[in-house]
Simulated assay, not measured.
Amino acid sequence: MFALAISGSAYAAQPPASGLGQAWPNTRDVSANPHFHAYVFMLGGIQYVQINDLNGNVLGAVGTANGQFITLPIGRFSQLVSTPQQAPAVTTTAAPAATAATVYQDSATTVTATPLTDGTVQIMALSANGCDTDPAICNSHIQ
């Protein structure tokens, strides 16, 4: 019983894990950009970052832990999400319509969004230190 009480209190200290994939999850918007919404969820030591547009449409999401990333199969443009370990699932001939905008950043992770000329949005997740030391690294992953 004591072990359950300890694990329960440790779990309660983490951000919520429910709501991933929802238009308006019941958690704080932590976006660094007024043109997007960003939501963070924690479960089992994995951080999930979801990016939505201003209308609440889920654009894409990634999971990250210890410098490793994975794209999640949710969001309108999930096929265009890239990480250091994964290129986008599909290629596009659309060009960037604007420069990459930082949508979320913490001490370990940076997530950017780049509107493309065909109306899609490319999401890119990187280790924050790569973007902090050389901003060209963040922009060089845009396909």
Rank of each mutant, 00 (worst) to 15 (best):
G67I: 09
Q143K: 09
V58C: 11
A100E: 08
L43T: 07
D106P: 03
T109H: 03
F36K: 13
I142Y: 05
G119D: 14
I123P: 00
S31P: 07
F77E: 14
H35V: 11
G75D: 08
P16I: 02
A136N: 10
Q85W: 05
P96R: 06
A136Y: 00
A23F: 02
T91D: 08
A3F: 11
Q79K: 15
A89K: 13
Q143S: 15
N66W: 02
I142N: 12
G56V: 05
D118S: 12
D29L: 02
D132L: 12
G21N: 06
Q14K: 06
L43G: 11
F36C: 13
Y48C: 03
A101Q: 14
F36T: 04
T117Y: 10
V58G: 08
S82D: 12
R28H: 08
M124L: 15
A100H: 01
H37Y: 08
P84Y: 09
Q14V: 00
T93L: 12
A98I: 10
Q122D: 01
T93A: 11
A10G: 02
A65F: 08
I70E: 12
N57R: 10
A108S: 15
I74S: 04
I6A: 13
W24E: 03
I70A: 13
V30M: 06
D106Q: 02
G67W: 06
A125Q: 05
Q122C: 05
A100I: 09
I51D: 01
C131R: 05
G19Q: 03
Y48R: 08
D29M: 05
P135I: 12
S82K: 01
L72T: 01
M124E: 13
G63L: 07
N33G: 14
V62S: 06
G75T: 02
Q50C: 03
M42D: 02
T117Q: 12
Q79S: 13
A113C: 13
I46A: 09
A128C: 11
P25R: 06
Y48I: 05
V121M: 10
S31A: 13
M42H: 01
D118N: 15
A3H: 11
N129Q: 14
I137P: 00
D53P: 03
A65I: 06
M124R: 15
A113E: 04
I142D: 10
F41R: 04
S82V: 01
A10L: 12
V49H: 04
A38L: 12
I6R: 09
H35E: 13
A98L: 12
T110P: 00
V111A: 02
T92N: 09
G67M: 07
P96G: 07
